[in-house]
Write a protein that binds this DNA or RNA. Structure first.
Length: 480
RNA sequence: CGGGGCGUGGCGAAGCUUGGUAUCGCGCUUGGUUCGGGACCAAGAGGCCGCGGGUUCGAAUCCCGCCGCUCCGACCA
């Protein structure tokens, strides 16, 4: 037994010993991802991709319910197009990859592989928008984008990554702002109700906002190591892009007007969030609503008469009830299977052997708590449904506690620095709104502003950094 | 882009100091015994030792150059 448990811990580095290594181990050993011969470009393996597919299915439904349609834009952006909006090109040009040749011939104009598609949507819209009757345009696309990052890590920062990018165009600023906030709320719903990840909702400071945006709304999550992960952003562009691209429409009053734009994106980065929010030293812990397999059935003593049939019957019942269920009837030892599916984060394990068959019961084991339950096979569907909901709720509660327990107010730069060094997490302070203070916080305490939360608290009247009159309460933290 | 670490069957490593037939564990294949927390026995398969050059009778090992991965910084919607 001692040897067995030793073998288990050798598989995955303890997160307390080396959080970074733990994270990488989980990504690889849970078979989410594989490295390729290209730096920063990864294979999403079937199990990892299946998580994304579940997120995709949930989000796509929400997008369509809120009136959006999917489109497919080109992968390449001519340099001249990218350069039309000044802030935008300054933000993205340094990390663009360029296509310079077609076959053996050098191109007259080089083409950027899309790092994001604002410019493509704008160019397209400038062709098709004429009347107020053409608005709003509520578009979304599922695609991959390329950003030539200097350092990369699985899910957290890829050079190529999968995401969705929504782009919308509206007749009025009010409508566009409403849309930006609507999609921000959709993202919050995804985080909380699908992924069991509590969020801090707020908007970015000027320093941290998206290149070309007037306002960036963000969702900030806290990871197990108390670092911040930005999980979904929604941008209000005003009419800046529309003006730069010459998009105009004739309004009801026969006046030429410039429309207002939004964009919002959510990427596979969220899978890093799932891992670092819920995972433990045995591996991945998946929230039930995105888990590719919600219940893994492990027949015990499967060579004995009737065991496989009994297990098959339970699987059929659960499948018919709409659960994602698998049975592992391979000839591996049961202990191996237990460890394997724990590493892969399957929320519930169902064991069924001869002893259970006699009693018309099975064993259910929760991945999140390890709790072992002996339950009747009658009404197994209802039992599983309730347990999966319980697991979701307790994962959320645990993550929320981590967020709350590690968020601290500070009233001076010195205090913020000390809190960051000793405790980590989110530090909230009052702030005057000046860039210099933001830079000073980064310089002295190593923290960037995470967001100006929607729910403001009055911690005092003056900026914790410079002592001048305060404008907002800000969350600070070390970010991924 | 700066600093550290590492490149040897699928994975993890030993061998390198002191040059001389490619080793070990896990995994994989086949057969058998097992089966309620990572089973056991037996027989097998699998290698441009990261790449290129040099020294040498002979290089995984020594020398020069390059490439890649990884961690920590800086940078990053």
């Amino acid at each position: 037994m001692a040897q067995d448990s030793k073998k288990q811990v050798e598989q995955i580095t303890d997160m307390e010993a080396d959080f970074t290594q733990w994270y990488t181990d989980v990504c690889i050993k849970a078979e989410l991802i594989d490295y390729t011969s290209m730096k920063g470009i990864f294979v999403l393996r079937p199990y990892g991709y299946a998580i994304w597919e579940n997120i995709q299915a949930y989000m796509d439904k929400k997008f369509k319910e809120t009136g959006h349609v999917n489109v497919a834009m080109p992968m390449l952006i001519p340099e001249s197009l990218l350069q039309k909006e000044k802030d935008h090109v300054e933000g993205f040009a340094p990390e663009c990859a360029w296509v310079t040749h077609g076959g053996s011939e050098e191109l007259e104009e080089r083409l950027c592989i899309r790092p994001t598609s604002e410019t493509l949507f704008c160019d397209h819209w400038s062709h098709i928008v004429q009347s107020h009757r053409d608005l709003p345009l509520l578009y979304n696309q599922w695609c991959s984008v390329l950003r030539w990052e200097k350092t990369s890590r699985p899910f957290l920062r890829h050079r190529e990554f999968l995401w969705q990018e929504g782009h919308t165009l509206h007749a009025t600023a009010e409508e566009a702002i409403e849309e930006t906030e609507r999609m921000w709320n959709v993202y919050a719903d995804v985080c909380e109700n699908l992924l069991a990840m509590p969020v801090v909702k707020g908007y970015k400071t000027d320093k941290e906002k998206f290149a070309g945006a007037e306002r960036t709304y963000t969702l900030e999550c806290m990871m197990h190591d108390k670092k911040a992960l930005q999980n979904g952003t929604s941008h209000y562009f005003g009419d800046g892009f529309a003006k730069a691209f010459g998009i105009a429409f004739t309004d009801k009053d026969n006046q030429q007007k410039t429309p207002f734009e939004t964009s919002w994106g959510y990427s596979t980065r969220t899978i890093a969030g799932i891992i670092m929010t819920h995972g433990d030293n045995r591996g991945l812990v998946l929230p039930p609503r995105v888990a590719p397999t919600q219940v893994i059935i492990i027949p015990v003593a499967q060579h004995k008469e009737g065991v496989l049939e009994a297990n098959q019957k339970v699987m059929d019942t659960l499948k018919a009830a709409g659960f994602r269920v698998k049975m592992d009837d391979s000839d591996k030892a049961p202990g191996w299977k237990f460890a394997e599916y724990e590493m892969k984060g399957v929320p519930l394990r169902l064991e069924l052997g001869p002893k259970d068959m006699e009693k018309n019961q099975c064993v259910l084991v929760r991945r999140d708590s390890g709790e072992k339950l002996f339950v009747s096979l009658d009404g197994i569907g209802e039992t599983v449904a309730k347990l999966l909901d319980d697991i979701h709720d307790s994962l959320y509660a645990k993550a929320l506690k981590n967020l709350q327990d590690n968020t601290f107010p500070a009233y001076s730069l010195e205090e913020a620095k000390k809190l960051q060094e000793e405790k980590g997490g989110f530090i909230k302070t009052m702030w005057c709104g000046d860039l210099e203070c933001e830079l000073k916080m980064k310089e002295e305490a190593g923290m960037s502003s995470r967001c100006i939360p929607l729910e403001q608290e009055h911690l005092g009247d003056v900026c914790a950094i410079c002592g001048k009159s305060a404008k907002h309460m800000v969350y600070w933290g070390v970010a991924y």
